[in-house]
Write a protein that binds this DNA or RNA. Structure first.
Lengths: 343, 343
DNA sequence: CAAGAATTGAGGTGCGCACCTCAAAATTTG
DNA sequence: CAAATTTTGAGGTGCGCACCTCAATTCTTG
């Protein structure tokens, strides 16, 4: 039989009350008693029954995802992931919500974060661009006892918070390797498109991409990043112009999550010439384009996994529990037409 | 406040005893009462508290992985995954064990499976090659109330069991696409090595690989599969001979989980000539070879994820619970040097 | 309509732990 | 050494549910 707290009390030669004080880190425990209990835990292999703990505590957890208002299909996938998790966790006394706020003004984001009621919320997963104000607001949240996860965004990593997402330098490098190897011996230029190069993740992806191309594929030349600012007209214009000025373009790399606008522009200008095209994130658009062989590869991070991972982390931190690191590593996935695997 | 069984009883206008009968599918419930309870569950949004259920049931789950005795590094990774899961689930009254049995004689495997004590075990995850006898033994286990998962192996899929693992045809196709695109325009032959072509998964991978090469890369020719039978001497011999007879070889595809023996043979014969090499499964060997750029890509299925998935499935089946399908899909990962991401 | 069967309700117990109170014992302090 | 303080123990309650018993009620069936 698995030992209970009562068995532990006997083994340690103390009362149940003292066991309770030790296990729940209550005050008024002598070092001697603490030692005896710790030793007994080791000796008899005591492990608290999480079901009993959960029942006795009878606590409901509240976690919030803070996501941008703007955003295209990938954001929808994320929202879907949050909804799915909310349903799945309803049974476990865990409330999951998603807030959408405008991310263009860091001051506004910081204000929102500061305004969060810290005893109504156990954790937040924040997807916001880097800014000192946001950074400070996050730190203050942590100080007030809210578990913070930096979520899929190009934030400077905080010591006191967890990060969920891929290494964007590596993601860019992976894209670079795929582009380089798919093109082969041919010489030519690579058009690189981004929504904005202000974001840290875009910068890191670009750096990773360039590092591989420069080191391994000297016959290829990366053009300066084109920024669409999520503006369709602007995207059409600059992409058309760039492709016309560079008839020796052999590849297009879209490093933002949303590839629809730039690639539509590419395909409208450029009908016959075969380009190697690599984009980021699995969305209905990129899925379809992979199936149609209009995109060669997609570098992705699974949004559902990211959401679940953030929740597991916040939950574990709330309970002062360890977590299984290997399960929380978000993979840099390489998707081809062949390994899409629809469920 | 979240509704409890008591609230549900009130809402349905029945007693707690009837609620208990309905929830736990006990006999002697009139259709009328069942309907009233079902309606009330919907109406007030009742969800059983899993912590309370677990505590009251006070059941310990026992799951066993049945793995082959032979096998190299990938099997070690699997065992490590099982060990990790065992530790993680110890708290949840779940015992996880791994049994190693010889898989060469299907009769022996079937006998082992038949000998399993079905009330001492809640579920088994079996990694065994296809055979009618094993298939029947698994079916009998299911009939006796043991949850069965067909685990990472080329079994014919059973209706009454779950499958954890990738679609091997798609995995082979993915390998084919990578090989084809990495080689580019060049003409040449592809050496394909397998431990054995008796296994269903090897056959499926080969079919997937061929289908892509034939359809998209007519300049490449797939040679007949070389079978090593896990014999180092034999591998050296046949691989050397094949490479010498086919000086126009441009790629090697190893479709078994263990790439060490065949690739060592390749590298020893073939020093200078640059070959595109694709193998399966992430192991210390394949990791190192990727880092050293002696392998170009690895097609992998995460063993840790597979183990956790199998356990989640067996647990959910035991509790008659639904599970989150999206979480249980094992991805066909494409690993390059760039996206290895050491933890 | 009576006897049998099926259904329902009331009530109790226990799962393992958190959280609380109060008194007793041990230790520290002036 | 006495008083103040800290530490410890005993004991109780409740979390939400599963599982059990027994009596009361309703429904079948010949």
């Amino acid at each position: 039989m698995r030992p209970t707290a009562k068995d532990l009390a006997e083994a340690a030669g103390v009362s149940l009350a003292t066991i309770d004080r030790v296990l729940n880190e209550r005050p008024n425990v002598s070092p001697k008693a603490a030692r005896r209990v710790a030793e007994a835990i080791e000796r008899i292999g005591f492990v608290r029954n999480p079901a009993a703990v959960a029942l006795a505590r009878n606590k409901t957890y509240r976690f919030r995802f803070v996501l941008p208002t703007s955003g295209d299909q990938y954001l929808s996938e994320l929202i879907a992931g949050v909804d799915e998790a909310r349903e799945a966790l309803r049974a476990d006394s865990t409330e999951v919500e998603a807030a959408r706020i405008a991310m263009n003004d860091p001051h506004h984001v910081a204000k929102y974060l500061t305004g969060i009621d810290h005893d109504a919320l156990d954790g937040v997963a924040v997807m916001a661009p880097e800014s000192p104000q946001v950074r400070d607001a996050l730190l203050r949240l942590v100080e007030r006892g809210v578990r913070v996860v930096q979520f899929l965004s190009g934030q400077e990593r905080l010591e006191s918070a967890d990060y969920v997402g891929v290494d964007n330098f590596a993601a860019g490098a992976t894209a670079g390797k795929i582009v380089g190897r798919f093109i082969g011996e041919r010489k030519g230029k690579i058009v690189i498109v981004s929504e904005t190069m202000m974001a840290l993740d875009s910068i890191q992806r670009r750096l990773g991409f360039d590092s591989i191309i420069n080191a391994h594929f000297p016959q290829l030349e990366c053009l300066p990043s084109l920024e669409t600012y999520a503006d369709e007209r602007r995207a059409d214009l600059i992409i058309q112009r760039t492709l016309q000025h560079n008839p020796d373009t052999v590849a297009v790399y879209v490093l933002s999550a949303e590839a629809r606008i730039p690639l539509t522009a590419v395909w409208s200008t450029q009908e016959a010439r075969p380009l190697t095209i690599v984009a980021h994130e699995r969305t209905p658009f990129s899925e379809q384009a992979l199936m149609d062989e209009r995109i060669d590869a997609v570098i992705a991070q699974d949004p559902g996994h990211a959401v679940r991972s953030a929740l597991r982390i916040m939950r574990a931190r709330s309970d002062h529990r360890e977590l299984l690191a290997s399960q929380e590593r978000i993979r840099i996935e390489v998707l081809l037409k062949e390994n899409l695997q629809f469920a």
